[in-house]
Structures are given as structure tokens and as C-alpha cells.
């Protein structure tokens, strides 16, 4: 191990980790919105939209992010749609994540009993209020464990961002291996960086899961 080399390149990894994290943040945020929208259309069985959403969910769940990114980044410019690397990464992650989030939220929505909605109707809440005050709070508490799992999954998926010419952690590691043949050092830093990102999130997720377990009604 060449410790000088390691200390020299730590800042590069930190910067790359920062790139990964900020893209992951926007991608995940967007995927939560897409997921919420999709799960609500599926839950309320909105006529035409329901089919479109179902097709989208199947399409995005059954294809790898890598292939989606290739299509977005190398395929679409051929018909005049040029997207920057960053937007590509965010769109790709949101396209993939949206369906996973939708499934997670839908399982939560479906766990809310019919009696809850009926009771809400009988006290005179309108449709919007029922969703906002009755269904969502209960559904989200059930959905938290799968949502957390999806967030971790999506952060892990960001490791393919290097294919759309983004200097993420994988890119830096591969670069250092190629340039200096410092394989051990580069890989050690790579593993440590991902541990530094994912370990706290995974621990926070399990703490959060334990806390919201009591939020459900009647338990």
C-alpha cells in the first residue's frame, strides 16, 4: 500500500462522491414524485392513465439502468434530442426509480383499510382531504421500509453513471488503475467511499423503520 498515493487522491474521491450523491439526490427526489403520481393513478384506477402507468412500470422494472442510459445518452441524440450527462443520469435514475417507488407506495396504499376511507367520507372530508389526511399518512408508514430499500438500491445503481461520461467514483477508480496501476489503493478508496456513503444511510434507514412501525393505525 502506498499511503502517500492514497492521501494524494482522497480529495478526488470526495469530489466524485459528491457528484454521485448530488445526482442521486435529484434522481431519487424525482423518482419519489413519479412514484407517488403513478401509485395514485394505479390506486384510484384513473381510466386511461392507469394503463400507461402500468406499461411504464413494467418497462422500467424489467430493463437495466445501464441500457436505459445508453439509449438516453447515445440513442436519442440521433433524433435530435441531446441531453447533457448530468440530466441523463438524473432522468435515467428517475425513470428506473419511479417504478420501484410506485410499487412501494402502492403496497402501502393498498394496506389502508376500506373502512378508513368510508369513515373519512362520513365525517365529510372531500376526496383531496381523504388522500392528504387519511390515506397518505398511513400508507407512507407502511411504505417506509421498501422506500428506504429503494433509496439504497438507487444509490448503488448510480455506480453505472461513468458510462455517460460523468466523473463518478467508478470512473475515478478506473482512471487511477489505468494511469498508475495502483490497483489496490484505488480499489480500497473505492470501497471505503461507498461504505462511507451507504453505511450511514443504511443505518439511518433501519432506525427510521423501527420508529415508523408504530405510526400505523390500530397497532
Amino acid at each position: 500500500m502506498d499511503w502517500n498515493f492514497i492521501s494524494e487522491y482522497v480529495p478526488m474521491y470526495i469530489q466524485a462522491a459528491w457528484t454521485t450523491l448530488s445526482l442521486a439526490f435529484w434522481g431519487i427526489l424525482l423518482s419519489l414524485f413519479i412514484g407517488l403520481f403513478c401509485s395514485l393513478t394505479l390506486y384510484f384506477k384513473v381510466p386511461v392513465l392507469k394503463r400507461v402507468t402500468a406499461a411504464y412500470v413494467e418497462l422500467s422494472r424489467n430493463t437495466p439502468l445501464l441500457v436505459q442510459l445508453f439509449f438516453l445518452y447515445f440513442g436519442l441524440p440521433k433524433i435530435g434530442i441531446v441531453i447533457s450527462s448530468q440530466s441523463c443520469a438524473i432522468i435515467g435514475l428517475a425513470f428506473l426509480g419511479g417504478s420501484y417507488m410506485s410499487e412501494a407506495l402502492r403496497s402501502g396504499l393498498e394496506s389502508v383499510e376500506k373502512g378508513q376511507v368510508e369513515a373519512a367520507l362520513s365525517v365529510g372530508l372531500n376526496q383531496g382531504q381523504i388522500v392528504r389526511y387519511v390515506i397518505l399518512p398511513q400508507a407512507v408508514s407502511v411504505s417506509v421500509p421498501p422506500l428506504c430499500a429503494n433509496i439504497i438500491f438507487l444509490i448503488k445503481e448510480t455506480s453505472v453513471f461513468s458510462v455517460v461520461a460523468l466523473a463518478d467514483l467508478m470512473y475515478v477508480a478506473k482512471d487511477l488503475i489505468g494511469l498508475y496501476y495502483k490497483t489496490d489503493e484505488a480499489l480500497l478508496l473505492l470501497v471505503l467511499s461507498y461504505l462511507a456513503i451507504l453505511l450511514p444511510i443504511s443505518i439511518a434507514a433501519s432506525v427510521l423503520e423501527r420508529r415508523v412501525r408504530y405510526a400505523g393505525f390500530g397497532n
Binding site: 448503488k156 448510480t158 478506473k174 488503475i177 490497483t183 489496490d184 480499489l187 473505492l190 461507498y194 461504505l195
Partner: peptide
């Protein structure tokens, strides 16, 4: 589970080969 699969691939493909 916490490591992206691509990192694991790098560890075996580049790391193990050299180690």
C-alpha cells in the same frame, strides 16, 4: 449487499488479478 455490484466486479476483475 451494501457494495454496488459494479464495485464487486472491479474488486474481482482488477483487484484479485493483481493481488
Amino acid at each position: 449487499r451494501i457494495m454496488p455490484q459494479l464495485v464487486l466486479l472491479f474488486l474481482i476483475y482488477f483487484g484479485a488479478a493483481k493481488a
